[in-house]
């Protein structure tokens, strides 16, 4: 179970105008602006749930994922994931979660993917049998047979993303965080990734928290959505509740964004 209560997080961002002169000025006197990435965010997610976490760019989605995965420390508020405080008990916490950053590779760039998997086996101390079973299962479900022996840098984006997802699940985590997993993928890969995530949830009861701008992802995967804007939770409910009749999901969400002025 994941709970966040009254979580706040702010960043100090340096600002300056364009141009060399402004850069020189900023070198001596820097103007900062405090950005409230999260203000007073609270929610609870139960085991086995699939939740779509949506909002416009800069709404605080990634900050939430980073706090939940123990990368960032919140300014205030309490965070509990399976009874642990992620940023305090980092090592125990992260051995039970899997994280995919759509924008950032976790594979070793120059070596075949299978070498990365083997290193992950040692990092997570996965017992030999479990590792073998997991690799077999993931290879089959994600169609990795041909990819495992190529270096990550020579894979296409879609192929690499499939390997990234496999890498994040190799230690059978109970919770999976996906930060824009379908960004830049073609239709075939997108569908493959969605199908896989769905199956993972059904087979193993993995809790999935997914941030995305692709509303089809949400429609295909999650019953529950949490909408954030300007660091606040604006809406927490089921997809059906929001959708008016047979309106297109993209239009529905655009309408939502407009109504909240975010």
């Amino acid at each position: 179970m994941i709970t966040m209560e009254n979580v706040c997080k702010s960043y100090k961002v340096a600002k300056r105008n364009a141009g060399f002169k402004a850069a020189c000025k900023a070198f001596f006197h820097r103007e900062y602006e405090i950005i409230n990435a999260l203000s007073d965010v609270s929610f609870t997610i139960n085991d086995g749930e699939m939740v779509g976490y949506i909002g416009p760019n800069g709404a605080g989605k990634s900050s939430t994922i980073k706090i939940l995965s123990g990368i960032l420390t919140p300014d205030s508020g309490t965070v509990l994931v399976d009874g642990r405080i992620p940023y305090q008990d980092r090592i125990n916490h992260v051995s039970n979660i899997g994280v995919v950053f759509g924008q950032r590779s976790q594979l070793w760039w120059d070596v075949p993917v299978i070498d990365s998997f083997e290193l992950l086996r040692d990092i997570y101390s996965i017992p030999g049998n479990l590792y073998k079973n997991n690799v077999e299962e993931l290879t089959e479900l994600l169609g990795l047979q041909e990819l495992l022996r190529s270096p990550a840098r020579q894979l296409s984006l879609g192929q690499r993303m499939r390997c990234e997802i496999a890498a994040s699940l190799i230690h059978s985590p109970k919770i999976l965080f996906l930060d824009e997993p379908t960004i830049g993928l073609d239709a075939v890969s997108k569908i493959a990734v969605r199908e896989f995530i769905k199956k993972q949830n059904e087979l193993h009861g993995t809790t999935v928290i997914l941030t995305t701008h692709d509303m089809q992802d949400i429609e295909a995967l999650s019953k529950r959505i949490i909408l954030v804007g300007k660091g606040k939770i604006l809406l927490d409910g089921s997809l059906e509740e929001i959708k008016k009749g047979n309106a297109n999901i993209d239009e529905t969400v655009a309408e939502l964004y407009r109504s909240f002025e975010i």
């Binding site: 980073k66 995965s69 123990g70 990368i71 980092r90 090592i91 125990n92 992260v94 051995s95 979660i97 994280v99 950053f101 950032r104 976790q106 990092i123 997570y124």
Partner: peptide
């Protein structure tokens, strides 16, 4: 990319 390091249990 230090993120990736922090999400591993080592």
């Amino acid at each position: 990319s230090f993120d990736t390091i922090l999400v591993r249990p080592r």
